[in-house]
Write a protein that binds this DNA or RNA. Structure first.
Length: 421
RNA sequence: GCCCCCAUCGACUAGCGGCCCAGGUCACGGCCCUUUCAAGGCCGUAGCGCGGGUUCGAAUCCCGCUGGGGGCACCA
């Protein structure tokens, strides 16, 4: 029997990265098995906020490539079924009326035990389980009733959710048993903490998928990183494509202790993915990203400069700072250029006559010049870099000069010579 | 307060009784390469929370402690 799982976020506020990781585990588990991955929104009303939240959840999942099967289910749509279940439990003596609400009758001896696919056996003493409300006095079902009934009605085989749901599990098990419905396998994934050791929340850094996207992370890198947050394949594999992840994922190798989100490792991994991209794809992604974030440089220049920066940046958002000099004149600091006027004058002369104005001939000419002046490469090249890029950190100097073109390069050199003779 | 869960380098983790005086990745330090910064290569620092057991033998099993987390609604 194929596996069927569901991701069931509540549409309150933004879907944050911990939730996304839970969604990822569900998705990987389903795809690995050739089963189904359902998306259910646990809404209790139909406000405007809910609508926006549902949109955001979908955007997040789509961007990461977590496709769900079928239509999105809304918990509210199951109202009739939930009420019916409560009435049945009442009729069969598993529940009783209490001040207008329907309460479930919990056994008060023994224990409720299940074999959690991630955490192993978990046991709750029944005497600690209170008679929970199934149906409120206004007729609306409570979460535990609705969730349990929906899982059963959807034929969910594995409930993979955050560890904050562990205490709900014995309640849902008891409800399902009273209803004579089959129990799903439960798998509770541990929390994700922020770098400060506290549970990840809106207060700690970029937590929504959209923020990661805005910071210039690419989806496959985020997916790979998230997969490794709590799951491992073996003792040495870290970079895995989406297909490899799907092929290798399993609940058995999900750890049972919480993990801390590490932005530095994510940055490193994102850089790995950026560098491994085919140049055309990198350029496409870069252009799309820059357009989205409002960068207004011309596309031709962006594409031409893409190969020069691909090897050097870890996040797309570093581009404007790193390659911005291609789009505007720079103002090098006096500190970087002080006293280099005479050198730059000779550089200018050399560059004025190089033919063609391409990186290789440029490099040859500048190296010859440095040798003639008895300067070490860095002594000769850093002032040029500063004059032309405005910084002592930049893409390759010769390639940058070529891309800038002879006129623009000479103009920047002239400006520097004039100011720093 | 009560219930439940968790515990290997700073971080993510491998380890499921001998293969481990603990392996990989990030970060960190050093060296190499080098026009800068990265990238890359090589080397290195760093860890089994504590105390009892069990066993010929424990990071691995059991108990306690400590620490961390989650949950205790007519919220989801």
């Amino acid at each position: 029997m194929p596996v069927r799982v569901r991701f069931a976020p509540s549409p309150t506020g933004l879907l944050h990265i911990g939730g996304v990781r839970t969604a990822l585990f569900n998705w990987l588990f389903a795809r690995h098995d050739g089963g189904e991955f359902l998306l259910r929104i646990e809404n209790t009303d139909t406000s405007r906020e809910v609508e926006e939240s549902v949109e955001q959840i979908q955007r997040s999942l789509r961007w990461l490539g977590l496709d769900w099967d079928g239509e999105i289910e809304f918990q509210l749509d199951g109202l009739g079924r939930h009420q019916e279940a409560a009435r049945r439990l009442l009729a069969e003596g598993h529940a009783y009326e209490h001040e207008g609400a329907i309460r479930f009758r919990m056994p008060d001896e023994g224990a409720t035990v299940w074999a959690d696919a991630i955490k192993g056996q978990i046991s709750y003493p029944n005497e600690k389980l209170e008679d929970l409300v199934l149906l409120r006095s206004d007729g609306r079902p409570t979460y535990n009733l609705a969730a349990a009934v929906d899982d059963a009605d959807s034929g969910i085989t594995h409930v993979i959710r955050g560890e904050d749901h562990v205490p709900n599990t014995p309640k849902q098990i008891r409800i399902l048993e009273a209803l004579a419905r089959p129990l799903p396998v439960y798998a509770h994934v541990p929390n994700v903490f922020g770098t400060d050791g506290k549970k990840l929340s809106k207060r700690h850094g970029a937590v929504s998928v959209e923020e990661f996207r805005a910071k210039g992370y690419v989806a496959p890198a985020l997916m790979n990183y998230l997969a490794l947050l709590g799951w491992s394949y073996d003792d040495k594999t870290t970079i895995m494509s989406r297909d490899e992840l799907v092929e290798r994922f399993g609940l058995e190798r999900v750890g049972s202790s919480p993990a801390t989100f590490d932005y530095e490792k994510l940055d490193w991994m994102n850089g790995v993915y950026l560098r491994e991209m085919p140049p055309d794809q990198f350029a496409d992604d870069l252009v799309a990203y820059l357009r989205e974030t409002g960068f207004d440089g011309d596309e031709e220049t962006i594409r031409a400069s893409a190969p020069l920066v691909q090897e050097k940046i870890a996040r797309l958002d570093e581009y404007p700072k790193f390659a911005g000099f291609f789009f505007r004149r720079v103002e090098p600091s006096a500190e970087l250029l002080d006293g280099s006027g005479p050198l730059l004058a000779q550089v200018r002369e050399a560059l004025a006559t190089v033919e063609p104005f391409a990186s290789e001939p440029i490099e040859a000419a500048l190296r010859a010049l440095a040798e003639r002046l008895d300067l070490k490469p860095r002594q000769a090249f850093q002032p040029i870099r500063a004059a032309v890029t405005g910084s002592n950190v930049s893409p390759g100097l010769f390639e940058s000069l070529e891309l800038l073109g002879r006129n623009e390069s000479l103009a920047r050199l002239d400006a520097a010579i004039k100011s720093y003779r």
